[in-house]
Design a protein around this nucleic acid. Structure first.
Lengths: 338, 338
DNA sequence: CTGTTAGCGCGTTCAC
DNA sequence: GTGAACGCGCTAACAG
């Protein structure tokens, strides 16, 4: 039998005070502002507290100070491999400042995101919204209630960290042009995605610069399966190289191509985005770095700065990306066999 | 400029009371026990509250009631694809009961895990520990402070949810035996892992049952890279099939084999575990299902039951697994070409 | 340096 | 059905 002693009330500050023969404020200080007490009284109090098994009550402290030592981190889909490293980094950074993080999963749903925010607001000091699906209006509403930092969402007036995949994608286009490709296809991602807009724009612009023909195909959702399904369409465009919205889609495309016996990279070059797969595909995927870890760290650093300064000029931190060349790209076959 | 109005205090229950011309207790009741008030006064209070923008203060309520509406979920490595679905499921289940979840990442470090627990204890009503690295003693200590449920850790007396991969692994061995394999190799995972012990035991026992020769190889960490590195060793054993600790290792092995031009499944069959990759490998990986989603749901259901009942008989919920046959296993080549 | 006095915002007795 | 008083555990003034 398990009998959690909920009733066996945890020791309070008063009990420690009595046992140590001091006032409650002294006990409080011994824990939060030891430098205000004499060295030996601190030791005495701490030892008595330890004996009794006293642990400061976080909730009571928060009610009194308004400081909870918690931040909220909301992502659209924790199962998407893009986010875990970001979350981990954010967590690590928070821990450094002795903060705990509430993780929220909006499930790509703005209603859910709104609801989470409401539930969190009264127990956190700040919020980080990653790839928010909220309207600008709602974002501003929440930002007015609590310090708030955005990742991969560009709302002027709200501190934000942007991963600019544009540069990396442009490099990818150039890389392909250098290899001798003259026709490439971009497989786009979610319409509402800020990132997709960046990438599409970069493909078009860089394509124009290098005089390439650009085709566009749309993958409804950024998943392996969606990628697999559009693979034939990609081949049908006549392009000799494909740039996918992200690595998952790229991986699906590679599988689809393999099914059709289209050799990679000989007959078709493939480029991913976000580098979430590492070299774990075969052939190893050429992709665009993501810097999501730095994004997580930076967002929290920004948030803590906001908390400290109480005010902050319109911050817009952009992280650049670059191409990571592996084995899924090569010169097009036709050029090699003149 | 951004100026979060920390000082623009959120509306309190008193302000609502004044504005609505009722006492504070009435406002309190309107939110927590509406049935104790007349229908129209509830409506009135609620509408006034909405107009003012009042939101009940979670912290104050928790201090008063001892109920926070939060649970802690601690995992060893959020970036391991095994956990996100579990976390997501747990979150969904918690949301159903209007609970928020604190996510903790122990980073495979028991010290960190202990520290997280201490930080969480005073702001959560219960805890779920996934694949805990803590000693039994510490687990029992924490379980005595708060209702606690374990996932993939078997400590008698503590409610626990176990994913028994043993059955699925046994099926895998049998599957290979049926295909005609007579010598297989198991690539093991972390020594401290409860799951690895289950799997190794199952391989040995099922191997004996079917009269197979079993070799053992150890991958220091369960990663793609570790798998890739041991691939040659797996070939060197002379086995015609390999069962890997998990899908990541299996994927690494597949890459390593491909480098050596060892065809899969013709020259070597590969079986993974946990089914975290879906069919996203090429060839699609035969693996053992994981049921981590149910584990997450069940653990939270158990926890809420514990919270409700205040006591619970020694619960040990085990989830069985099964083999998922895809394309990475086949009859050994030697048998096919007599 | 240390003790005293007020709250933080809310839920919960009790009377009315 | 509704209001007044008290307490949850702690910290922030203010004394001394």
């Amino acid at each position: 039998m398990v009998t959690p002693q909920k009733s066996a009330h945890a020791p309070t500050i008063s009990q420690v005070a009595d046992a140590a023969g001091v006032s409650r404020s002294s006990v409080s200080r011994a824990f939060s502002k030891p430098h205000m007490l004499r060295e030996d009284t601190v030791q005495h109090i701490l030892s008595v507290a330890g004996k009794i098994g006293y642990v400061p009550n976080h909730t009571a402290r928060a009610l009194s100070t308004g400081r909870h030592g918690n931040v909220a981190l909301i992502v659209p889909d924790i199962a998407n491999p893009f986010f875990p490293p970001l979350i981990q980094a954010a967590q690590k950074r928070a821990d450094l400042s002795n903060f705990c993080v509430f993780l929220g999963n909006s499930n790509e749903d703005r209603g859910q995101e709104d609801k989470l925010l409401d539930r969190f607001v009264s127990q956190v000091e700040g919020v980080v919204l990653v790839s928010s699906r909220l309207s600008e209006e709602r974002i501003k509403y929440h930002a007015a209630r609590r310090p708030l930092v955005l990742i991969n969402r560009d709302v002027s007036g709200i501190p934000r960290v942007l991963i600019d995949s544009g540069k990396g994608v442009a490099e990818a286009v150039r890389h392909l042009a250098d290899l001798g490709h003259v026709h490439i296809v971009y497989v786009s991602g979610p319409r509402q995605s800020w990132s997709d807009r960046q990438r599409r724009k970069a493909v078009n612009e860089a394509g124009a610069t290098h005089g390439l023909k650009i085709s566009m195909i749309h993958a409804a959702v950024p998943t392996y399966e969606a990628g697999r399904q559009v693979a034939p369409d990609a081949v049908a465009t006549g392009a000799t190289a494909v740039i996918a919205f992200d690595d998952l889609v790229a991986q699906g495309i590679m599988a689809g191509l393999a099914q059709q016996r289209v050799k990679i990279p000989e007959r078709m070059s493939v480029v991913g985005c976000d580098d979430v797969l590492g070299a774990a595909t075969y052939p190893a995927l050429t992709t665009v770095s993501n810097r999501s870890i730095e994004a997580g760290e930076t967002a929290l650093a920004l948030l803590f700065e906001l908390l400290r300064a109480q005010t902050m000029s319109d911050m817009r931190h952009v992280l650049s990306t670059e191409l990571v060349v592996r084995d899924s790209t090569a010169a097009p076959a036709l050029r090699q066999l003149p």
